[in-house]
Amino acid sequence: MGLTALAAVGLAATLDAAFAEPPSRVHPIALFGRVVGAVEREWTRPRAVGVAVAVVLPLAVAAVAWGVVTGAGVLGGSGGVTPVATAVVAGLALFSLTSLRMLVAVASEVVDAAERDADAARESAIALVGRDTSSLSAAEIRSAAVESAAENLADGLVAPLLAFAIGAQGSVAVGVAAAAWVKGVNTLDSMLGYPDRPVGTASARLDDAVMWVPARVSAVLLAVAAGSPRSLVDARRWVRVPASPNSGWPMATAAAALGVRLEKSGAYTLNSDAALPSLDEARRGVRAVAVAGALAFLLAGAAVAVARVGP
């Protein structure tokens, strides 16, 4: 049944390449985000609530994902097409839990706009970066785009694909549930995991643990995609500069592979002896993210293809 899991990965990759994202009105993560939004308010005991949220919400979204894929297999079994039904529903679910084309498209748009119209680039960058863009120069905008593309490669693609590949060793439904759980944890962190929001402390710590491996796998993929294995060695000098225990790996690897400085004012500077990325260097950085993402899909497919898994 490894072919069923492989078909799910292939369908997710194909849908991502063709459509980038499901429509927002039916996007499961957008719906999950609305639930998380209800938590963003004052609580008498915010840390206790935060622990409950970090435990319950990702498990809930994982349970729903498992139920949908399992139900598709049961219904498909009545028509004798269990593997096909499972592969299609799992592929649709995995498509909604991963993102590559949208990430690359937005990063490319920001990089190109920085050269033509800095104001437009600052506006576009809001959808990509977690910082105030109002005073960024064109070079700083390019730096922000490359940093965010590298970091989001780990969060938005490698982490859920890795979870699927591991979970699918048991069954396709478990693989999708694992990917949904990881995506739930990451979404909680992105919405609540800020120092001024005690309700998000548990989510942030859980995300740190969950992203430890995906961040480092992403760094390897970026080094391969950029044709610069040496960058993994060079990046080790800067991986601990950002406050996050994980984001420094893909970002520092990108800085080393491109030979550029990546910088968030007041927070970190990676490869400080180099210059901020030029237009061509930033474009190369975004292309490396695209290639690394394609490699992630291929490796996930290879991992599940050899597994003897159930539906």
Rank of each mutant, 00 (worst) to 15 (best):
Y268D: 06
S190K: 07
V220P: 00
G227I: 05
T201M: 11
A202L: 03
L206K: 04
A300W: 00
M211I: 10
V286N: 00
R230N: 10
R287V: 13
G200C: 00
S218Q: 10
E263I: 07
R261Q: 14
A243S: 15
S228C: 11
S272I: 01
G293S: 10
L298P: 03
A235W: 02
K183L: 04
S247T: 13
V213I: 15
L221G: 03
Y268P: 07
A215H: 07
R240D: 15
L262R: 04
V233F: 06
K183I: 04
T269F: 07
R205H: 13
S218G: 14
V182F: 12
P242H: 11
V185P: 02
A252V: 02
L279W: 11
A226I: 08
G259H: 08
L295D: 06
S278H: 14
L279C: 05
N246S: 00
V182N: 14
A180S: 05
G175Q: 08
R236K: 13
L262V: 08
A282F: 01
A209G: 13
D207G: 03
S265P: 04
Y268G: 08
D208W: 13
G285K: 10
V217M: 01
V260R: 06
L192V: 06
M251D: 03
G259F: 09
P195G: 09
E281C: 05
V233M: 01
A256D: 03
P198I: 03
A180P: 00
P250D: 05
P214E: 11
P277I: 10
A257Q: 07
V220L: 14
L222Y: 00
R197S: 07
V213M: 11
W249F: 15
D207T: 04
A219W: 13
V239K: 12
F297C: 02
L262P: 02
N271T: 03
R197H: 08
D208R: 13
A292I: 10
P198N: 03
A226V: 04
V241N: 08
A179V: 11
V224S: 01
A202F: 02
A274E: 15
T187R: 02
A274Q: 14
L188H: 07
F297W: 15
N246E: 00
A180L: 01
A292K: 05
